[in-house]
Design a protein around this nucleic acid. Structure first.
Ligand code: MN
Ligand code: MN
Ligand code: ZN
Ligand code: ZN
Lengths: 136, 136
DNA sequence: GACTGCTTTAGACTAACTCTAAATTTATCC
DNA sequence: GGATAAATTTAGAGTTAGTCTAAAGCAGTC
C-alpha cells in the first residue's frame, strides 16, 4: 500500500498542490534514490499541465526544508539524489549497477567518539562502494 | 623545506612543464585542500605566461591519474578539492570556517567488515562535520 | 468579484567543469 | 642549430545541474 503523501505534507505544514503531491508520492514510495531529472521524468505525465523543471527543484528543496526527504550525494562530483528515508542511515553504492542501497545506522559502528577532543563531531557521512550480491 | 615537485613528477612519468611544476609544487606543499579556482589563483602569477583554466583542470586531472594527488568532495553538492595526501585517510570539515582537516585512517575504526556478506565493500569514505577547537 | 499572497512556468543565468581548434612548446633526429 | 613531429597550452565555446527572474495562474479572504 502507498504511503499517503497528502497527510504527510499537511502534517508538515506544506500546502498541497498537484505538483507537490505527485512528487512527494513518488518519493515516498520508492527506495531508488532518484535524481531531480528522474523525478521529473517519473511524474511529468501524471499531471494534466506542463511540469517545469524549476517546480521540481523548488519542490525538492521545499521537501528537504520540511524534513520530508533528504538530499544525498553518493558519487564524487555527481548530482543530488533524493531520499524519503529520513532516518539517519548510510549508503552502499553498487559500483557495477550504480544502484544505491540504504544501510541502517546501527549496522555500522558509531564513529562520533573516535576523534580526539580537538574535534567536536556534530555529524558524519559514510558511503560504501563495492558490489552487492543477490542483486534482485 | 619544500617537497621537490620535479622529482615527484619525473618519477611518475609525467613530463615537466612550467605549468605542471608550479601546480604540483603548490599542492605538494599545502594541506588546505584547495579548489581548482584556488589553485589557479595561487599559481597564476608565478608563471611568465597567461595561465588558462583549462590547463589547471587538465593538470589536476593528470596529477590524479598519475597518483600524485587525490580529488576529494567534502561538501554536499560542492566542487572538487585537491589533496596531495594520497594516504588513505578521512576528512573533518569545520563547519564554521569551512577548513578541511585530514584524519589518519587508523584513528577511526575500520568499517569494511561491518556489512554482512551481501555487500562486498571495496572502498568507503567517511567525512566528519563539526567544529575544531584550537583552530590556530 | 477584487485583493492578496502563494505557486508555477518558461527561459535566462550561473558555476564548475569539459571540449575544440589553433598556437606554442618540447623532444627527436640529422 | 634547424626541420619535423608530438605533446602541451590557450581562449573561448559548450555542457550539466542547477538557481533566479518576471510574468501568468490559482487559492483564500473580504
Ligand atoms: Mn540544494
Ligand atoms: Mn574529474
Ligand atoms: Zn538512503
Ligand atoms: Zn586530505
Amino acid at each position: 500500500m502507498l504511503i499517503a503523501a497528502d497527510e504527510m505534507l499537511i502534517s508538515r505544514g506544506v500546502r498541497l498542490t498537484p505538483q507537490r503531491l505527485v512528487i512527494a508520492e513518488y518519493l515516498l514510495n520508492t527506495d531508488c534514490h532518484p535524481t531531480a531529472e528522474q523525478v521529473f521524468d517519473a511524474v511529468a505525465n501524471a499531471l494534466p499541465v506542463q511540469l517545469s523543471k524549476a517546480t521540481v527543484y523548488n519542490t525538492l528543496n521545499m521537501l528537504v526544508e520540511a524534513g520530508v526527504i533528504q538530499e544525498v550525494y553518493t558519487e564524487p562530483g555527481g548530482c543530488a539524489r533524493y531520499d524519503a528515508n529520513t532516518m539517519r542511515h548510510h549508503h552502499f553504492v553498487d559500483t557495477s549497477t550504480g544502484r544505491i542501497y540504504d544501510i541502517p545506522f546501527e549496522q555500522v559502528p558509531t564513529l562520533e567518539k573516535s576523534l580526539d577532543g580537538k574535534y567536536k563531531v556534530k555529524n558524519y557521512t559514510v558511503t560504501f562502494y563495492g558490489d552487492r550480491a543477490e542483486d534482485s
